[in-house]
């Protein structure tokens, strides 16, 4: 891991990885969306409405995985002062926020025809909305710190503390009575989604994740390029 602490070495790996992730992600996503929209049968209870699952579930996963990645880069910044950690945190936040928002929007659209409501303040919906607000707070804090020339330590602390919301989101449907149903897929109990309906989900999950990674790498590269440019401008101004 620390071999890639060097931004030059990171860039050497990130440049080809971006294209590959983007290409593979787009292919998997196209296959998953096609399967989910045209090939799988409708649900016995919800009918065609169930197809929004193939977007909603990956969006929820990436909204949470995005913050888990921010927390990981926060730790690596606070403990090891990893030079790429703050860059990674700032690159991740808007991407994660977009997926958290997508999860909330698709959930709302799904909730209206199935539950009969756009929004309810139950444990799962509320904790997911808090995650979205945490993203907005992190983005504001990290960019304010960057403008002041700080190392982003406050943002890292915020990223770490905000991670306590992740188990709350995950266990909300177990701990509390909620309108949102319990989890359909678990390691211990397998899947309660029939195989006929399930198969496009891993495709869109991995596809969205690859695109998430590609966009994050692009943002990290852009940030590193900007830092390089700023350093060069400072040097030429000093001469």
């Amino acid at each position: 891991m620390h071999g890639y602490a060097n931004p030059a070495r990171f860039l050497k790996l990130a440049r080809p990885a971006t294209g590959w992730l983007l290409g593979v992600g787009a292919l998997l996503l196209a296959a998953g969306i096609y399967g989910g929209l045209f090939v799988t049968p409708p649900d016995y209870l919800q009918g065609e409405t169930v197809r929004i699952l193939y977007i909603h579930v990956p969006a929820a996963w990436l909204g949470m995985a995005g913050w888990a990645s921010i927390a990981a880069s926060s730790i690596s910044q606070l403990v090891w002062r990893h030079p790429l950690a703050a860059v990674a945190g700032r690159a991740l936040a808007p991407v994660g926020a977009v997926f958290a928002a997508l999860c909330l929007a698709t959930g709302s659209i799904w909730g209206r025809p199935t539950w009969g409501t756009w929004w309810e303040w139950d444990g799962r919906l509320t904790s997911m909305l808090i995650l979205f607000f945490l993203y907005l707070g992190y983005i504001a804090l990290a960019s304010a710190e960057r403008e002041r020339g700080g190392e982003g330590r406050m943002a890292a602390l915020f990223g770490l503390v905000g991670a306590v919301n992740l188990p709350i989101i995950h266990y909300s449907v177990l701990w509390w009575r909620t309108l949102h149903q319990g989890q359909s897929i678990s390691i211990a109990q397998g899947s309660s989604i029939a195989p006929e309906l399930l198969w496009p989900l891993p495709l869109t999950m991995v596809g969205f994740t690859a695109i998430f990674a590609a966009v994050t790498l692009m943002r990290m590269r852009a940030e590193l390029a900007r830092q390089k440019l700023e350093a060069r401008l400072r040097r030429s101004a000093a001469e």
């Binding site: 016995y44 919800q46 169930v50 199935t114 009969g116």
Partner: peptide, 12 residues
Amino acid sequence: ILAKHDERYMPP
């Protein structure tokens, strides 16, 4: 009245 469905999805 709100409907609450469970976590199972399957073809008809």
